[in-house]
Each structure stands twice: as C-alpha cells, then as structure tokens.
Design a protein around this nucleic acid. Structure first.
Lengths: 114, 114
DNA sequence: TTCACATGTAATAATTATATTACATATGAA
DNA sequence: TTCATATGTAATATAATTATTACATGTGAA
C-alpha cells in the first residue's frame, strides 16, 4: 500500500487544461461543430472550413491531444488513402466547485502541471 | 420586426471562447481555486501563488474579461486601498451538442469571432 | 522622514501559437 | 505519361502569450 493514489483521470489538471486550450480557438470549435454532423476526411474538412491543410493539421493535433477527436485511416473504394476524423464522447460540467477540485491537484512548482 | 434576433448570451462564441481561453493556464485555475475558498486582494494572492504582481495582473485581466472573477476596491480599516477579487457564479455543461450549437454561430470570415 | 505596505504601469525578453508557402509521396483515371 | 486527388512535413514569418525588472504613486505607523 505504499503506492501513490493517483487522481482520477478527469481530475488531472494537465489533461483538463489541454481540453480548455483546445477549445480556445474559433476554428477548432468550428471543426468540432462540423464533425458533430458527420465524420470528415482532412482535405474535405479543409475545404469546408476554408483554411489550408497545413494549418488544419495544427488545429487537429491540438484537438486530438485533448482527446476531443480521433482519427482513422482508411483506403477508400477508389484506392486513395483517406484519414477520417470524428468526435469522441465527452461531457463535463464546468462550475466553481469543479475548478476548485482541479486546482487542488495543481502544483505550480511541478513541470508537468505546466 | 426587421431586427436581427441576437443569440442568447451563452451562445455567443466570442464570449464562450474567452472563457475557455481563460481556463487554459494552470496559474489561472489555481487563482480560481483559491478564490473559491475566500476572496483575496492582489498582493496577498500573488504571495500565496508565488508569482510576481505584474504577472498576476495579466492573469487576472484574462479571468475578469471572461467574467469568471470580479473586483471591488475597498479602503481597509488602516486606510490602505485594497482591491479584492472574488469568483462569479458560472455553470456550463460541455458536450458535443453544446459545441455544435456554438459552432453554428461562428462565422470565420467575421472579425469579431476571432 | 523613513519604512512597510498597498495600488498600478512601462518596457523588455522569451516562448508559444498561428498561419503561409513550398515541397515530397502515393493512387487511380484519362 | 499526365492530371487530379489524397496523404504528410519542412521552413519560415507573424502575432500573441507569458514572464521579468524597473518604475511611480499613496497611506499609516514607527
């Protein structure tokens, strides 16, 4: 019983902060809104939103690292490699109490909280 | 009835994104956690967290602009001007559906969505 | 007057985030 | 072979965020 008792995943500050950071840009909210209606592949998603593909990669990486979207590579019927992105499930209630709980897990001296 | 029907406040993307942005830094979460327990004045808050006052101002500004904290200037019994910060009330549920609703209000051509 | 607090800002540096252009690869169809 | 489509990255430029140091003001108490 000498083990450290880790916080449940949903109380890990670094993870939660990654989620907030991922949601802090209109393009990324737009991406999530589009993926809510249907999964999309990268090139098509870039056309829908009207941004370049390299830029879309940057935004998708943040969303993926936050766990808000996930990718799956497929070979479509015409033989082309196609990478589809889709939403994951998430449900979080944002309240002062909840942030207080998160806050208690933050050690500002610690590198990994940053 | 030629007026534009504005979105309710809680669906304003710029406002919601400001909230997410305000929550995307561990120091700011820490601030909220401390203010949850008690209101604090600036110098004391800087000492508790262990950061410089100018830096604290930067973080407090973001939290205030997002509407997560509010300030009130007081003259304490010893005559010193003291600015107290306290939490506001907020309660938001974060789901794919909710982000989809927000997303529909985002016009990426529009400056004020940025 | 000097000290210990409180308020606030200006100027700068360092780092991270955002965005663009150019490049490279692979596939099927014309 | 050439074209149109898909994948991805490298290199660069610009802008925003984060953080520090130095400065300025005002008050009450010693």
């Amino acid at each position: 019983m000498a083990e450290h008792n880790p916080s449940p995943e949903y109380l890990d500050p670094a993870k939660i902060i990654k989620i907030f950071d991922a949601l802090s840009h209109p393009v990324r909210i737009k991406i999530l809104g589009i993926l809510y209606e249907n999964r999309q592949y990268i090139s098509e998603l870039a056309r829908i939103i009207g941004i370049s593909r390299p830029l879309l990669y940057i935004h998708l990486r943040k969303l993926e690292e936050a766990g808000l979207v996930k990718a799956s590579m497929e070979i479509s019927s015409d033989g082309k490699a196609t990478k589809y992105y889709e939403l994951t499930h998430f449900d979080m209630r944002l309240t002062p109490q909840m942030l207080h709980e998160i806050s208690k897990e933050i050690n500002l001296e610690d590198e990994k909280s940053q």
